[in-house]
């Protein structure tokens, strides 16, 4: 295992190095000047130049790159040009927001999608099946920026039973019942398309499993239909759905950027968007390189897990 990791380490580091170069230089191809934005409206050319010096943007581009990389190697992610705060602190706060939102959406997608899938596959009530079928189609087809606005209009503006946006001011654990109400709408909005996918895949997988002989054997042996479904059909239908759900989790993490914008939910997506719009180079560089690092680490971990599970792969490592 260690020898495998040692063998993979150079290629992983190379990926990170190339990514850092690409991120750093491509970002600077975008038109705009962070010094102009930091200096503020109506700033004179002298002030803009002084701000540029202060931010270190007057130095050569290679020097700026080396300063950034050496900072990262020593654990210093730098400070946001515009917000002034340490980037590590900004990312930690944003990541907590995004992960909370995505985790809640995962729970809703799994439960909602699972229930809908089971109903679609097993109910004999045509009316119920048609309604659930239509709802999953709708959840799949309606983009989050539409469903988000609709949710706000119905539950925050018309019924006034849920807050329209933001997070609970006191933090989650100070009043979980209130914090959950802030979380509910954005999480549902984010979960809807994933829940629809889960429902469709689960229904298809269950229908296929229902055709298996061992299920009919269970029926012949006198197992109740509910017990047969819960004990045999559902568990045997889950593996392909779990794979699909894993992909959906990744899509929800990416899709959180839209939901965060609609519900003013402070997360990494909002942070990245703000960084790009402000040409906050350091912030964007750190966030993108962090994303690449996460993917590289996940890939390594996946290889290791495969090796642990399958001896044939372990031998090839």
């Amino acid at each position: 295992m260690w020898s495998y990791l040692l063998r993979r380490a150079p290629s992983a580091l190379l990926v990170l190095l190339i990514s850092s170069v690409v991120i750093f230089f491509v970002l600077r191809l975008a038109p705009g000047d962070p010094a102009v934005l930091v200096a503020g409206p109506d700033a004179s050319a002298e002030t803009i130049e002084a701000v540029r010096r202060q931010l270190g943007l007057d130095r050569g581009i290679v020097s700026q790159y080396l300063t950034w990389i050496s900072g990262l190697l020593t654990g210093d992610l730098g400070r946001s040009y515009v917000l002034g705060a340490p980037i590590a602190q900004l990312i930690a706060t944003g990541a907590a927001g995004t992960l909370t939102l995505t985790a809640a959406a995962c729970v809703i997608a799994a439960l909602g999608g699972g229930l809908a899938g089971v109903i679609l596959a097993t109910t004999g009530n045509r009316w119920l099946r048609s309604v659930v079928d239509a709802l999953t189609s709708l959840a799949f087809a309606v983009p989050t920026y539409v469903s988000g606005v609709l949710l706000v209009l119905v539950f925050a503006v018309t019924l006034r039973i849920l807050p329209a946006s933001g997070q609970y001011p006191g933090g989650f654990w100070s009043a979980p019942d209130l914090a959950l109400q802030y979380l509910l709408m954005p999480a549902v909005c984010l979960a809807l398309p994933a829940a629809a996918v889960v429902a469709r895949f689960l229904a298809a997988a269950m229908r296929s499993t229902l055709d298996e002989d061992f299920i009919q054997t269970g029926v012949a042996k006198g197992l109740s239909k509910r017990r047969n479904t819960m004990r045999h059909v559902l568990p045997n239908s889950l593996p392909p759905v779990v794979t699909v759900f894993g992909i959906q989790v990744g899509q929800m993490l990416g899709g959180a950027i839209v939901v965060e914008a609609i519900f003013a939910w402070p997360g990494v997506g909002q942070l990245l968007l703000q960084g790009v719009l402000n040409r906050d180079y350091l912030l964007v560089q750190d966030l993108l390189l962090l994303a690449v690092t996460v993917f590289v680490v996940i890939q390594l971990l996946t290889d290791i897990v495969h090796a642990l599970i399958d001896p044939r792969i372990r031998e090839t490592l």
Partner: peptide, 20 residues
Amino acid sequence: VEIAIVRQSQSMLSSLRGGQ
């Protein structure tokens, strides 16, 4: 006083109308 950042004008309007 709490000053919250809500990036879209429509969302700000919803916050007002929703009493938030």
